[in-house]
Simulated scan of single mutants.
Amino acid sequence: MSLFWRIFLLNAAVLAVALALLMLGPVTVSTPVLLTEALILTGGLSAMLVANAVLLRIGLAPLERLSRTMGTIDLLRPGHRLAVTGHAGIAALIRAFNTMLDRLEAERATSSARALSAQEAERRRIAQELHDEIGQTLTAVLLELKRVADQAPPAVRDQLHQVQETTRNSLDEIRRIARRLRPGVLDELGLASALRALAGEFATAGLTVRPSVDNDLPELGREAELVLYRVAQEALTNAARHADASHVVLTLRRRPGGVELCIRDDGRGLGDAVEGAGIRGMRERALLIGAELTVGPAGGRGSEVRLRVPSSQEPVADG
């Protein structure tokens, strides 16, 4: 039975009961209406309205639950589904909503995988250009400056040495950016060494990072290792730029069925701030490999990012 007919019949039943009571009961209406009759009719109308409201509240309760869920659903936290309750039309509507969520989550996972794969390819391309083009150009400039400085008079030589030092620092900075864009150490030395090297990079920026990585990590897929590295990178970036933290503890532990990455800082914490693009990006990466990401307070002062990754991973489609 459709929702229209259910509401219609509920109202019809209330009106029919009221009519039967009026016809069969001892109540009559005089002209003009007496005070007692007016009180009886007012009471009957109130009873009709209350009965109608209760019946409609019961009948439309599943729709209210559906409306609340539609307003709070987040595709970055998948798996939430409504229990199929109610009659005919309402149950069909809830089933359609659950089916829509299944389709949206699948489509988002596919599109996110393609977008992140394209992003990693673009990172590799930019890192390669920084290393091959700009890096080689600055190296040539350094060599030319050295040649000119060797032939320059002493008064100019000191200035040229300062320019050399500035150019060398710029070259080191470009190489550091290229390494962050394309973590070659991840492919060459593995996840544990890559995380330790990442902690060392942030330590040079004034942030004390204490890494602790288990040596007996289970076999993880390439995509899972890349997600772990990128989540750690983003969490350390947030701690350095936004949290006003001075100490960070980075741990990667073996857990039953997988591994757990935890980054805990002593900064000002998250407070009531809305999740930014960085945290949402971490959630999207976690979804791609079936991992569970939690971001919250660190128990005292600061914040904590925790990523639980199962050991068996399917490769992410590169689109």
Score class of each variant (00 low, 15 high):
2 S>G: 11
9 L>F: 10
10 L>Y: 05
15 L>S: 13
16 A>D: 02
19 L>I: 11
19 L>Y: 04
20 A>R: 03
20 A>P: 01
27 V>D: 04
27 V>A: 13
35 L>A: 15
35 L>S: 13
37 E>P: 02
38 A>C: 02
46 S>F: 15
49 L>P: 00
51 A>M: 12
52 N>H: 13
53 A>F: 11
55 L>R: 03
59 G>Y: 04
62 P>R: 01
66 L>A: 14
66 L>Y: 02
72 T>F: 03
73 I>P: 00
77 R>A: 12
78 P>V: 04
78 P>S: 06
83 A>L: 06
83 A>M: 05
84 V>T: 09
86 G>E: 10
87 H>P: 00
88 A>D: 11
88 A>I: 01
90 I>T: 15
90 I>G: 00
90 I>E: 03
91 A>R: 14
92 A>L: 05
93 L>E: 14
93 L>Y: 05
95 R>F: 06
105 E>T: 07
110 T>C: 01
110 T>Q: 07
115 A>W: 15
117 S>R: 08
119 Q>R: 14
120 E>Y: 15
123 R>E: 10
123 R>H: 15
123 R>M: 04
125 R>C: 03
127 A>S: 15
127 A>C: 07
128 Q>S: 15
133 E>S: 12
139 T>G: 14
141 V>R: 06
147 R>T: 00
149 A>H: 09
151 Q>F: 00
151 Q>I: 00
153 P>C: 02
153 P>Y: 01
154 P>H: 10
156 V>P: 00
161 H>Y: 08
161 H>Q: 07
162 Q>R: 15
165 E>N: 10
166 T>A: 12
168 R>H: 13
169 N>I: 04
172 D>N: 07
175 R>W: 02
176 R>M: 10
178 A>K: 03
178 A>R: 03
179 R>Q: 15
181 L>E: 08
181 L>I: 12
184 G>H: 11
185 V>S: 12
186 L>H: 09
187 D>E: 14
189 L>N: 11
196 R>I: 11
197 A>H: 13
200 G>V: 04
204 T>L: 14
205 A>I: 09
205 A>H: 09
210 R>N: 14
213 V>M: 04
215 N>L: 05
216 D>G: 06
217 L>Y: 10
219 E>T: 15
225 E>P: 02
227 V>G: 12
227 V>M: 07
228 L>H: 06
228 L>F: 13
236 L>P: 04
238 N>A: 05
239 A>T: 11
240 A>E: 10
243 A>L: 08
245 A>Q: 03
245 A>N: 08
246 S>R: 12
248 V>S: 07
248 V>Y: 01
248 V>T: 09
249 V>C: 00
252 L>D: 07
254 R>S: 13
255 R>F: 10
260 E>Q: 15
260 E>L: 10
262 C>N: 11
263 I>T: 14
264 R>M: 06
265 D>E: 09
265 D>Y: 02
266 D>A: 09
269 G>F: 13
270 L>P: 00
276 G>Q: 03
277 A>D: 13
279 I>F: 00
279 I>C: 01
280 R>P: 02
281 G>H: 02
282 M>T: 03
284 E>A: 15
285 R>I: 10
288 L>K: 08
295 V>S: 02
300 G>M: 00
302 G>K: 01
305 V>N: 03
306 R>A: 13
309 V>N: 02
311 S>Q: 15
313 Q>D: 10
314 E>H: 12
315 P>M: 08
316 V>P: 07
319 G>Q: 07
